[in-house]
Simulated scan of single mutants.
Amino acid sequence: MIGQLLNATQAHSDAEWMIEDAEIGQVTVVASVITIKNQATNCVYWIDDGSGRVEARHWVDSANEEDSERWGSITEGAYIRVMGGLKMFGNKRYINAQHIRPVKDHHEFLFHTLEAMTVTRIFEKGPPPRPSDAGKDPRAVAGGSVTGPSAYTAQSNTASSTDQYAHLPPLQRRIAEFMLSRPPADEGIHVGAIARSVGGDARAISEALDKLMDDGYVFTTIDDSHFQLSV
């Protein structure tokens, strides 16, 4: 959603954009075109999806008739899907659009909204358990629905998964269990997300992570601020 892109942050101008604790690369939005500004080398679409407004800037090859015809079919008031990267220029963020196309089915806007909500919840609470994960539940074996705690709680982290951390000091244990509850990600989990979840003094959290690394429970990934469980 555009509102999420407007709230995205960067540690510095060359850093990856972050939404909450998740790094973002390519983005896609479905929005209504408010205004169109054609320029010599690019076309700027001012778009709104109800959560916010942002510019989508597409660089056009005027010598390419097929390219000009494709983008020329987009009009103000139409809904479009934009795909590209989030950029910043002159303290103003915009989408550097690599692809834009008109939305021909109004259900696509509803689908995109639900998809954004689903992905956000997965990053916050982890993915819901798969049917195979609930195989030990008699109701699941019988093909019925499984009721009880929300699928977005940490119920998938069984006692056997957390027993290996039971002997750790409280802060280290909370850190390990929080990391275990998050969906797998190659880049690991940012220290800011860990701090917000477990609470406590920043120095104590840093020392706890250092100790977990020394003992082989966690390791750093893309930089010194991202951590991943070893087991």
Rank of each mutant, 00 (worst) to 15 (best):
M1E: 04
M1A: 05
I2D: 03
N7I: 08
T9P: 01
T9A: 08
Q10L: 02
Q10H: 05
A11I: 11
A11S: 13
H12L: 05
H12E: 11
E16P: 05
D21T: 15
A31R: 06
S32T: 13
V33D: 02
I34D: 08
Q39A: 12
A40C: 02
S51G: 01
G52W: 01
R53S: 11
A56D: 04
H58V: 13
W59Q: 09
W59V: 13
V60M: 09
D61K: 05
E65K: 14
S68E: 04
I74A: 01
G85N: 10
Y94A: 00
Y94C: 00
Y94V: 00
V103D: 06
D105K: 00
L114V: 06
M117H: 11
T120A: 15
I122N: 08
F123G: 12
E124K: 15
E124V: 12
E124P: 01
K125R: 12
K125P: 00
G126L: 01
S132C: 08
S132E: 09
D133V: 13
P138A: 13
P138S: 09
V141C: 01
P149G: 11
S150I: 06
S150E: 02
Q155K: 07
S160I: 13
S161G: 07
T162L: 00
A166C: 05
P170T: 10
L171T: 10
L171R: 12
Q172I: 06
F178I: 07
M179G: 02
R182Y: 01
E187M: 07
I189T: 09
G192N: 04
I194D: 04
A195C: 02
S197A: 15
V198Y: 03
E207Y: 08
D210L: 09
D210S: 13
D210M: 06
L212G: 02
L212W: 03
M213Q: 14
G216K: 03
F219G: 08
F219V: 07
T220I: 03
T221H: 02
I222H: 01
I222A: 04
D223P: 06
S225V: 08
H226T: 05
F227Y: 07
V231M: 10
